[in-house]
């Protein structure tokens, strides 16, 4: 049991993160101060939220390239709602963000489930459609800080037990989805549908419908993140979070989620996101140009996927007696 824990992917990743922090602290000890680490976590929270959703989608053998566009569209819509009706309670804004995000995710899911269009094609298409829709809605204009209501902007920054609400959102999502993934029928169905779709059908799991729910969850999380994003940066426009979908996929891959489906955990997605978040925040303080970030995350993806492949390499059938005892 202990041996399995130590050799698990999550443990390896924790080791890599600790090593990374140690390296950074030799150059800049202030980085590992709790307050700064809390900042890094807060800064990485949007990535964590999206990575959890993406992880679930990838588990079911799909991919969601539309998350960043969903985030931007939902962010624009809630900003415009806020401008139009500044008095709306924040609970309504949150409900609109999560609901709209989930609807956009359902649209992806329906196309994958009912029309059986490959997910990469669906989300490639909806990604551009969502972005274009933002332009149509906003007429290409920005929603700026001064147009947003103070309450709208304040929520993600409000401190609660010395952590901002944004961080708490990520923490709640991690806990909630850890429970969903390990302790609910739907959660286990995600693993089954991606790990062995054929067998899942025999076990009474509707694979298409399971994929639909994965897209819905991914969309809902993207919607929530959309609100958090525009309120935190106090601006909404067409191109926010452009290309962020790749960071999200990268976080999943680094977190040990198998693109072939069926393998991945919430903890993995969290750690993968943190790994990227730490690098992003550390580069400026250790005096490396932030322009290095893209190449580093690319390199990390390749190394991570190569390591995962080594670990999951199919071993031949064990027929010989001596081989049976050797393993």
């Amino acid at each position: 049991m202990l041996k399995r824990l130590i050799t698990s992917r999550e443990a390896l990743l924790i080791g890599a993160i600790v090593l990374l922090l140690v390296l950074i602290s030799t150059r800049f000890p202030g980085f590992v101060r709790p307050a700064n680490l809390a900042n890094v976590f807060n800064d990485t929270s949007p990535l964590i939220l999206l990575a959890i959703g993406q992880m679930i989608v990838i588990l079911t053998k799909c991919i969601d390239l539309s998350v960043a566009a969903n985030l931007a569209l939902t962010g624009m819509v809630v900003s415009m709602v806020n401008v139009a009706a500044p008095g709306l309670p924040m609970a309504v804004i949150l409900a609109v963000a999560i609901g709209l995000g989930a609807l956009l995710g359902m649209f992806n899911g329906i196309l994958v489930w009912k029309l059986q269009i490959p997910p990469i094609v669906v989300t490639l298409g909806t990604m551009t459609i969502f972005r274009g829709t933002i332009f149509l809605l906003s007429d290409g204009k920005w929603v700026n800080s001064h147009e947003m209501s103070p309450a709208f902007k304040a929520l993600p920054r409000t401190d609660f037990l010395s952590l901002p609400v944004l961080s708490w959102m990520a923490i709640i999502a991690v806990i909630l989805f850890t429970i969903v993934m390990t302790r609910t029928t739907l959660g286990r169905a995600f693993y089954a549908a991606g790990g062995n779709p054929h067998a899942a059908t025999y076990a009474g799991i509707n694979v298409g419908k399971t994929q639909f729910w994965a897209f819905t969850i991914s969309g809902a999380l993207a919607g929530l993140t959309g609100y958090l994003w525009v309120s935190r940066f106090a601006v909404a426009y067409v191109d926010i979070a452009g290309g962020f979908e790749l960071d999200v996929v990268a976080a999943c891959v680094i977190g040990g989620v198998s693109i072939m489906g069926g393998i991945g955990t919430v903890a993995g997605a969290l750690l993968g996101a943190l790994f990227l978040g730490i690098i992003k925040n550390a580069l400026p303080v250790v005096d490396i140009s932030p322009f290095w970030q893209l190449a580093i995350s690319g390199g990390a993806i390749i190394i991570a996927v190569a390591l995962n492949a080594q670990a999951n390499r199919e071993k031949g059938r064990i027929i010989l007696k001596r081989a049976e005892h050797a393993t």
């Binding site: 790990g195 076990a203 009474g204």
Partner: peptide, 18 residues
Amino acid sequence: TVLFDELSVAENIFLGHA
């Protein structure tokens, strides 16, 4: 043998009616 490699033995047995 139509089962799920990544799930535990108990989960394999009770998937869908746990």
